[in-house]
């Protein structure tokens, strides 16, 4: 049965606009395979671009063993970072009304800034290291347009890998002095430790995630571009957030980043 890609992309777009969640897409017959879900994501992105938005990079999801087991998959997924999802963080602090989201959660990650394109197949971490201009601590606000986060793999892939918004701390160009697998991540909510992990939580090394993405995109005839920002995957459990909370993420060796959630 042919799945109506545009219809489902339209439903997601409406959920974005109205902030009213929709029922899981996996309940639609014929939406069993992930390729159809990526086509929905692409259709949703295309709508945004028509409205004047721009692609600024990608995010990688499902990079932890725990998440992959939960979703019954053995590889990550990815979403598209749009200009409209970027929360500027002057001096490392961003601010956003919580009402912009449906059911937001915060994650601590390492962001990569590319200075050269990465074109698969066969991209390795050596290529990622060569192509990386800088890295930064980042906060991804994940959000689901699916009611109560009742998502399966196809739901989150279609829903832009559940991306809500993102903030990136000051870029560090001397990142080569760090072993990103050993970098510790701590996420505080109003000063209280709420989530933590290390770079190795993401497939063993954040750069391995970026290499995976470049190779995955190649299988779809796409590549990572110079100037792209890549969120390489959450390094600890996602934490629900509410108005009045300040979420601060520190990654060892990098400047911190924070997001203030306002009413």
């Amino acid at each position: 049965m042919e799945v109506a890609i545009d219809v489902l992309a339209g439903r997601l777009a409406e959920a974005w606009e109205t902030r009213r969640p929709i029922e899981p897409l996996h309940e639609n017959p014929g939406l069993a395979d992930v390729e159809a879900a990526y086509r929905i994501q692409q259709a949703w992105v295309a709508r945004r671009l028509e409205q004047g938005d721009a692609v600024v990079g990608r995010k990688i999801g499902l990079t932890s063993r725990a998440m992959q087991e939960q979703f019954g998959v053995n590889e990550p997924d990815y979403g598209t970072l749009l200009e409209s999802l970027h929360l500027p963080a002057p001096s490392g602090v961003a601010s956003v009304p919580v009402g912009r989201f449906i059911q937001p959660r915060a994650e601590g990650e390492i962001a990569f800034l590319l200075k050269e394109p990465l074109s698969g197949p066969g991209v390795s971490v050596a290529d990622v290291f060569r192509a990386t201009a800088a890295v930064a601590a980042a906060i991804e606000i994940v959000d689901s347009r699916i009611r109560d986060w009742r998502i399966r793999l196809v739901d989150t892939v279609a829903d832009n890998a559940s991306c809500g918004a993102f903030a990136v701390g000051p870029w560090c160009s001397r990142w080569r002095e760090l072993d990103l697998a050993l970098a510790g991540m701590t996420l505080y909510v109003n000063g209280r430790l709420a989530s933590s992990g290390t770079g190795a939580a993401a497939l063993g090394h954040p750069a391995t995630c970026v290499a995976w993405l470049a190779n995955k995109l190649a299988s779809l005839g796409q590549r990572l571009e110079a100037g792209d920002v890549v969120l390489s995957g959450s390094l600890g459990p996602a934490v629900p957030v509410a108005a009045g909370q300040l979420v601060r993420v520190e990654v060892g060796g990098l400047a911190p980043v924070a997001v203030q959630f306002t009413a």
Binding site: P121, G122, V123, S124, V125, A126, A181, A200, L203, G204, H205, A207, T208, A211
Partner: peptide, 10 residues
Amino acid sequence: HRSMLINPGE
């Protein structure tokens, strides 16, 4: 060759 390379974590 590219297929010979094993990334960290693999």
